[in-house]
Write a protein that binds this DNA or RNA. Structure first.
Lengths: 162, 162
DNA sequence: CGCTTGCTTGGAGCGCGCTCGAAGGTCCTA
DNA sequence: TAGGACCTTCGAGCGCGCTCCAAGCAAGCG
């Protein structure tokens, strides 16, 4: 964890070095680097988020700085899309937006925050595991009740709360 | 699905027929039937819900009619506790309160709604399965990133959005 | 040129699921 | 009989995560 000029990670990436290294996730149909300057509505269509939400994410600090066209319109890169992908995943875990913002800050602060990022993700992982367990638990209850209704009966023993 | 006078299920249950039949869930330390007249704060302590929330549940129609003492104070039964247990589980699945209210209505309407209840629970079940899949998916992403931070490196190939 | 379409901003509004407050009645113990 | 804990109702308020609106600028087309 030596401190380095930072920023390196979010921005940059020398064009074409992007696909496949160290676990870059497979993605739908991004444009090749160099033409990856999506408008906000393209990104909205792509991610399923509304343009409103995309701007809001930016305002609250959940996004890295987004490039602009010469007239000031947002131009999202493939990298930004990757980030939104991660954000989407984290959102599914039920992680509060505030925590994601925190993570985004850590990323902006550079390599010196690796430890803290690790902690944050590890904690999230634990939550996800717990959630999965809860859900499986619930599934069991659900299956039991569904079973009851399926053979619409168990006529004696009305003591079950349906 | 012949229509029957209804109500039978939520209220009643001939005392002592309650435990173990047709999948009654194991529970913590309920009082024997006959003394199961809990105050709202007992139920709050028991379920982890606030008394405010319990009253609110009642107002919105999520609870069956709750017994009252001669002076009008709520007295919850073991059966009510069971129902709250189910509600808690459904809540964990992310089911909207409105849907739970719908389910509660169906229960109040009696046996003639078995089919609809089945559908509702089956749909919920499908949602839960989907959620579990999503979470496992997210877990994979998380593990990948955690792995990256764990061996704090993969120094070439900076193309990953952290 | 005017028109449409799509983008910009800041700020207000909304739906959900609670959460709390005020004002008053009841229960329990001493 | 007094005091305090706990209960009642109704309605307002809150935090989260968006969602929408108004007013205005820029580009492209007939």
């Amino acid at each position: 964890m030596q401190s380095t000029p930072a920023t390196t990670e979010e921005r940059a990436a020398p064009a074409a070095a992007r696909v496949g290294g160290c676990g870059a996730p497979p993605r739908r149909h991004p444009r090749p680097d160099g033409q990856d300057r999506y408008t906000i509505s393209e990104v909205a269509a792509f991610t399923g988020l509304s343009a409103h939400t995309l701007r809001w994410y930016e305002r609250i600090g959940l996004m890295p700085h987004i490039d602009r066209s010469h007239t000031g319109q947002r131009r999202y890169s493939n990298r930004d899309l990757d980030w939104l992908d991660l954000v989407g995943k984290l959102r599914l875990t039920g992680m509060p937006v505030a925590d994601m913002v925190r993570y985004a800050e850590l990323v902006r602060e550079g390599e010196s925050t690796y430890g803290e990022r690790y902690e944050l993700l590890a904690a999230t992982r634990r939550n996800v595991l717990a959630r999965i367990t809860e859900l499986q638990d619930t599934l069991a209850v659900l299956d039991q009740k569904i079973g009851f209704y399926a053979d619409a009966g168990c006529p004696r023993e009305a003591g079950n709360t349906r």
